[in-house]
């Protein structure tokens, strides 16, 4: 779990999907100037057939939020002011953290089925919180105003995470973690 180190930082949490290996999770923590402080990535995760059947439409929130998101958030040493994600299913990770979790809108993002708050602007991006956590929006805006992070583009770090995950895949031969018997 986090140590609550008092460095103004912002977390970026996402998942990349690999056709053969499955899901790779990445969590990048940046200071407000955009410099990396921590990076955590998971071994690939592949749902079993049983999980696919039994979880049905809740499978992605389970894998993204509970399995990957929760695990990654718990590994960080620095406690960020807020965490951003570009994957709707990752909002399920909010349940396992006391840090506000934001969904940053990307081009072509499917929002209809998601349980989201009204959108609001943060820097140059449109963001949402989970509708189940009403207070997150106010908390985020308060923290943002003190963070002096306006120069940070909240979508850009996800590109870095994806490149880092690719780099890690090139270097380390991945071992898929079995998730079901």
């Amino acid at each position: 779990m986090t140590t609550g180190k008092s460095v103004p930082a912002i977390g970026f949490l996402t998942v990349t999907e690999h056709a053969e290996h499955g899901l790779f999770g990445g969590y990048l923590i940046l200071n407000v100037s955009g410099r990396p402080l921590e990076f955590h990535c998971t071994a690939p995760l592949k749902p079993s057939r049983a999980q696919e059947i039994l979880y049905g439409p809740t499978l992605r929130p389970f894998l993204f939020g509970e399995q990957i998101g929760q695990t990654l958030l718990a590994k960080a040493k620095v406690k960020p002011l807020l965490v951003c994600t570009d994957a709707t299913a990752m909002l399920a990770a909010r349940e396992f953290s006391d840090v506000p979790l934001l969904l940053v809108q990307t081009d072509g993002m499917e929002l209809k089925t998601a349980n989201l708050s009204e959108p609001f602007a943060l820097g140059c991006r449109k963001v949402f919180t989970s509708a189940s956590y009403d207070e997150d929006q106010r908390n985020v805006l308060d923290k943002w105003s003190t963070a002096h992070a306006d120069s940070l583009d909240l979508l850009e770090p996800f590109t870095r995470i994806r490149e880092a995950l690719e780099e890690a895949q090139k270097t380390v031969r991945p071992t898929t973690v079995p998730t079901a018997a």
Binding site: L37, E38, T42, A43, P44, S48, Q67, I68, T179, A181
Partner: peptide, 14 residues
């Protein structure tokens, strides 16, 4: 039984 094995995490601190 569907085990909830947390994926292995590799961490880097800069």
């Amino acid at each position: 039984k569907i085990p909830r094995t947390a994926p292995k995490v590799t961490s880097f601190t800069f």
